[in-house]
Design a binder for these strands. Sequence first.
DNA 1: CCAAAAGTGTTACACATACACCCATGC
DNA 2: GCATGGGTGTATGTGTAACACTTTTGG
Lengths: 269, 269
Amino acid sequence: MEGYDKHAFEPFAVTVDLAVFTVRAGALQVLLIERGQEPYAGCRALPGGFVLPKESAGTAARRELAEETGLTDVSGLHLEQLRTYSEPDRDPRMRVVSVAYAALLPDAPEPRGGGDAASAHWLPYDGLGPLAFDHDRILADARERIGAKLEYTCLATAFCPPEFTLGELQQIYETVWGAALDRPNFRRKVLATPGFVEPVPGAARLTGGRGKPAALYRAGGATALHPPLLRAAAGSAPSSPSPSSSPPSPPSTSVSPSASSAPSEGSSS
Amino acid sequence: MEGYDKHAFEPFAVTVDLAVFTVRAGALQVLLIERGQEPYAGCRALPGGFVLPKESAGTAARRELAEETGLTDVSGLHLEQLRTYSEPDRDPRMRVVSVAYAALLPDAPEPRGGGDAASAHWLPYDGLGPLAFDHDRILADARERIGAKLEYTCLATAFCPPEFTLGELQQIYETVWGAALDRPNFRRKVLATPGFVEPVPGAARLTGGRGKPAALYRAGGATALHPPLLRAAAGSAPSSPSPSSSPPSPPSTSVSPSASSAPSEGSSS
DNA sequence: CCAAAAGTGTTACACATACACCCATGC
DNA sequence: GCATGGGTGTATGTGTAACACTTTTGG
């Protein structure tokens, strides 16, 4: 922090990259753009862009998200700083330091690929081809963080619309974790955590066309989940298999579901 | 990521700031420097400095740490990216984006305030006055992260020398959390977690001058802690009060010990 | 009536808590 | 012997896992 000199360093460009997730059609999906220019022309990439001179990275992330998805009301949006990627050669043209954000959206309006992006689409996380730059790693880091945070925070409600049923909330967990959960136990756990959800008094909704109408809930004020809601090791196959269309996707091949802790750039040497 | 133009943006300076912790004399201590120049001359600040054109932020953090502490061998050093601070006015002179790192050191060699720092010292975390820039917030964020990570990772061994006793490991937890733990239960929990610690076959050490010599352990290969080692709510006062000098410090007044999850800049709007 | 989905209850087991007790060492 | 700290054992409670069962809707 000493020895300031505006010419003592080469200029760095600072950008934000966004890993935006939603749960849709029983699958975890990601918002991706298709690049129109070199390098990586035709490749898919995370949405993002430059941080403007007068805004913080968080403000830039919200602005870019609005520009590229057409979201004007960011109510019910969870946006969280993930990590900063600063390898000197991560962009072949110049020195770009990128602050990555992870965002969660409740439902998924099809994006109108505005702003800089040529086109923007929701794509299933599983089975994605390689992305431009180091965006594979950013996306994998974001997915791992989201999965881990479901365990010990009330974050799952950020994937849900303002009013939701406990079955819908459970499907969020099952989709992100790729494992089925026991419904009675899940229900008890959620209701026993003060502030996780609060009931909407008289409301009910039919979810699958058949069956008993489910009570509706809103997200509560709590953020932490003590004690945590732990996912089992792997590979259990309990009772109810699927919500609507596709079955809960098995653990991704590109991301380890186990909770490794330290980011790799800044790990113990 | 589209529309690159090296003149389309003002230059940003990119720096790293380091929150370096150690446990010493029964207290959590932080490495701080004293600023010699304006602004904030005479104020304490976190060590740090510019990211050089050819290095990543992680490399810069390790270099700055070595320069300002005189540490040449970074064996047993845990260095972890914390978060990036990018408010436009966080430095009054120019636009500086800072990538913050948290580091944990086993023992505490008194730093030889080299590099840019006028002087560098270890200071107890509790009772610190205000720091320069937004370093108060960075330090508070780092402390909260470290405390939370002790719960669900094997990070505590990063505070210990290569060989340590279980009593010493327990004192790390008690010092960082400001709460006493039950010794038999702590022991069982640590030993029951595969890869947390591994015994050093024949070794033993006397810790307090008196008492039975304690067996020595090394850090194991595990990083995650499943299920986690949860700290109680607050304010319990069990059996053994203190290690050597000062009693286990109560929860800091400037940092909430509860596990709030989302960083504030990038939270849900 | 049957299928499907929500909701309730119950039992068994794992784990953590709390505390009593024994071992080894220095004074 | 006694204080101090390491190490072992054991009862009790809390919370999860697993699964049986009831309720309410549509076909």
